[in-house]
Design a protein around this nucleic acid. Structure first.
Lengths: 121, 121
DNA sequence: TGAAAACTGAACCATATGGTTCAGTGTTAG
DNA sequence: CTAACACTGAACCATATGGTTCAGTTTTCA
């Protein structure tokens, strides 16, 4: 659970997720860390454009970066999407079992969280 | 199973979720359906302003509306947040896989400190 | 019938977003 | 030493967002 103003961070991270390029960057970084140049090439845009996306992800806490020499390396933030998953799960509790598809997905999500979350960050 | 790559709808619904007022509207509608006037009053904004939020939620498929007489009633859409939860769940799998791989690399490094670099990626 | 309620649509405003180009700065490799 | 590389920052552009006001339209109800 996170302490600092939950709504502002939710705003930022849902906004970050609302762009297909940024979701792609997250998926990419989940596989391997990458430089901004790497990501710019993979997503067919300028360095400057990719840098802006990285800044959005960084402000949302979804990505952290480290500059060594002339290369800025991007990695996933330790926070992950726990808060966002929690919001969706909480929303679902309000909206009781009327729709089976959501039940199933949320069950899978909770199972994964319980397995993997402890002492990872 | 939910489609993993409905990018346009994911764009729209994550964008819809990036505003605290709209998340509040969803929570409210999960409890009871409401008219636009109801929601505008509850969230302290003009009717026109709330109508715009409802349109955003409707375009994302998160809310459906029906106009009877002079009142437009808003309810949650049947689609729910299944696709969004599915994207986050899939991302979690990648995210955790990455940390598992990292754990393994570290273990190998500890075991055999002087041997050549284990291939990650 | 007529006034009020509930919504709709247009116009406006300030700011944010997603992208670009261009002109740098600092770092590395040859 | 010099050239190429990776990034940074500023400026610019078109469009979107989150809100407003104002001027309707349709529906209800006394």
């Amino acid at each position: 659970m996170v302490q600092f103003s939950a709504t502002a961070r939710l705003d930022a991270s849902f906004a970050a997720l609302s762009d297909a390029t940024r979701r792609g960057v997250l998926e990419q970084l989940a596989r391997a860390e990458a430089s901004i140049t790497d990501l710019a090439a993979r997503f067919h845009m300028t360095l400057t454009g990719m840098k802006k996306h990285i800044q959005v992800l960084e402000r949302a806490g979804l990505v952290v970066t480290e500059k060594i020499g002339r290369v800025r390396t991007c990695r996933l933030g330790a926070q992950g999407l726990a808060d966002e998953a929690a919001w969706i799960a909480g929303y679902h509790q309000l909206w009781n079992a009327r729709f089976d598809a959501l039940d199933q997905v949320i069950a899978e999500l909770k199972a994964q969280e319980n397995l993997d979350e402890p002492e990872r960050h």
